[in-house]
């Protein structure tokens, strides 16, 4: 009985200290922020309730987008090699094949209308700074036309499987123009020296971000980087919740590739320890019965 009392005191002291230096200290250093908003309600220049017309969208895209953007899945290859495109625009313009799938509909429509506002990078691209975002605003387009473009992009986007390959394709489309992922052999399509010029610093390699930032942080950060890192030049990319989950899943598959092995082995090792402790207790009882 006395030993249990000692144990209780010990557990209480260790528990209080642990609570203070782990959950509590981290909550002080990383205060809670507004929850992620996957409907992107703050941008409402385009009436997204309008039903889009795919046929008209196709015409508009071919007239307005493919001079800069590739859409491989719809038979529009890139106009020039990545290095040249990056040198011309500052960053390789995205292939729009996946755009209809990975970007939220509301975000995408408002992005076409006014990219800088949708991306939350007004602090960088404004009249005072004199910098202009490489893609012009299509605020002259009618909301109906914009929704037609969105409908067309959604119609060409291929479905991807819910596996590592699928997650990888989402990651490459969403992050791969700027970020390296060395541990997966992924190199940003925009050359390092060019992207540094464009962003002000080299975007970090994401190999270990699942560990250094963690799923919780990434969930909020990818949704809107300004919330956690005010002033960062990383734009809000407007991923749907599903696409973002796929990106994070891929970061985990690369950065913590032994997770499944660790968790299944862990159960067995702990079970082994429990059996060991029980046998040790029985042995101790037998031995001590002679001396007590």
């Amino acid at each position: 009985m006395k030993e249990f009392k000692i144990l209780a005191v010990l557990v209480a002291l260790v528990g209080i200290t642990y609570y203070g230096i782990e959950p509590y200290a981290h909550s002080v250093m990383h205060p809670a922020v507004a929850p992620a908003d996957f409907t992107f309600q703050d941008v409402k220049n385009v009436d997204t309730s309008l039903a889009g017309n795919v046929e008209n969208g196709k015409v508009l895209v071919e007239a307005n987008c493919i001079a800069c953007h590739a859409i491989e899945k719809a038979g529009h290859p890139a106009m020039m090699p990545n290095a040249d495109a990056a040198a011309s625009y500052g960053v390789v313009p995205p292939d729009l094949s996946q755009a209809g799938r990975i970007y939220d509909k509301n975000y995408l429509a408002n992005f076409i209308f006014d990219p800088v506002t949708a991306m939350h990078v007004q602090q960088k691209y404004n009249p005072e700074s004199g910098k202009a975002f490489p893609m012009p605003s299509y605020n002259w387009m009618s909301p109906q036309d914009i929704m037609d473009v969105v409908a067309y992009l959604q119609s060409v986007a291929p479905k991807v499987a819910d596996n590592v390959e699928g997650h990888k394709s989402t990651f490459e489309a969403a992050c791969g123009r700027c970020h390296n992922m060395q541990y997966a052999g992924i190199e940003a399509t925009t050359p390092a020296s060019v992207i540094k010029e464009h962003m002000g610093a080299n975007p970090p390699d994401l190999s270990q971000y699942i560990k250094s930032r963690g799923e919780h942080y990434l969930h909020s950060f990818i949704n809107d980087p300004q919330v956690l890192l005010k002033g960062t030049s990383m734009p809000r990319v407007g991923l749907t919740e599903k696409a973002q989950e796929e990106v994070i899943a891929y970061m985990e598959e690369v950065g913590d590739s032994k997770k499944a092995e660790r968790e299944s082995l862990g159960v067995w090792v702990i079970l082994y320890s429990v059996i060991f402790a029980i046998l040790a207790y029985l042995w101790k009882r037998k031995i001590w019965s002679e001396v007590h």
Partner: peptide, 24 residues
């Protein structure tokens, strides 16, 4: 074996805690 038999039991309980930390 007397002293160690008790220690081995304490060790057993400790290892459950330790490996919980190691894996999870």
């Amino acid at each position: 074996p007397v002293f160690l038999s008790k220690d081995v039991f304490v060790l057993g309980v400790f290892l459950i805690f330790f490996f919980y930390l190691v894996f999870f």
